[in-house]
Amino acid sequence: MKRFVIFLLAALLIGGSGAWAEEKILMMATTTSTDDTGLLDYLAPEFQKDTGIVLRWVATGTGKALKLGENCDADVLLVHAPDAEEKFVAAGFGINRREIMYNDFVIIGPADDPAGIRGQGVGVALAAIKSKTAVFVSRGDKSGTHQKELELWQAAGLPIPDKEAWYVQTGQGMLATINLAAERNGYTMTDRGSYIKYEANLNGNPPLKILVEMDAVLLNQYSVIAVNPARCPKAQLELATAFSDWMAGERGQGLIGGFKLLEKQLFTPNAQ
């Protein structure tokens, strides 16, 4: 018994420290969309091959990803909420913000389109949903997608809904939110990648269709930010910079452009 306990304690210690000893490990906090679509699973092995750095990531909402950076629990961030990111950098939590790629958002809804928004601009569409009090499902989780949605209501000159009966806030991930919208026969806003996944899950015949797309305000910019080592002594700026350079470089940009989900390109590289 005593030996068993000692063994377990030893295993615990080795498990705790040993794995970190040799390799160079870059800890990244990112958003669910990059993970859910499989983009990171596709990029990480290539990045390791080129640089010898192991990329590990925690996928969460942009809000929490920024919080992890603020708490020094990550070395680098890959997020998509430009306003919040600028505040983050201005507050001294992050440095070297660099735009990497974008994807776009779409507004989806039931095929019979009860609010009649098909083919409209975003502002008109949202106003129609509000006036018809059609169900609109929101992430409601401070994620990049949620923040984008809030910007759209503001840009359309509409008050941000909150307690209205037709405005449903899930507090969950993108695909859970889409599924909920389908259950409620409502509208929602999603990134295109998540929608493609959703479409594929239902064998190409989903109840919710893309109704509004290609509006300039729907573009979704992703950036890499290094966590500021001046504030976080343990933050590995060198590795974070290597990642940022690789993503913005020819190799990373090419891979991003070539990433396809179900034959469709998801992200457009646009590093300067």
Binding site: G15, M27, D73, K234
Partner: peptide
Amino acid sequence: SQRGPLGEWGLLFTL
């Protein structure tokens, strides 16, 4: 968390 009192132990995001 790194900002927490036991951040030195490096146990966040480990089993």
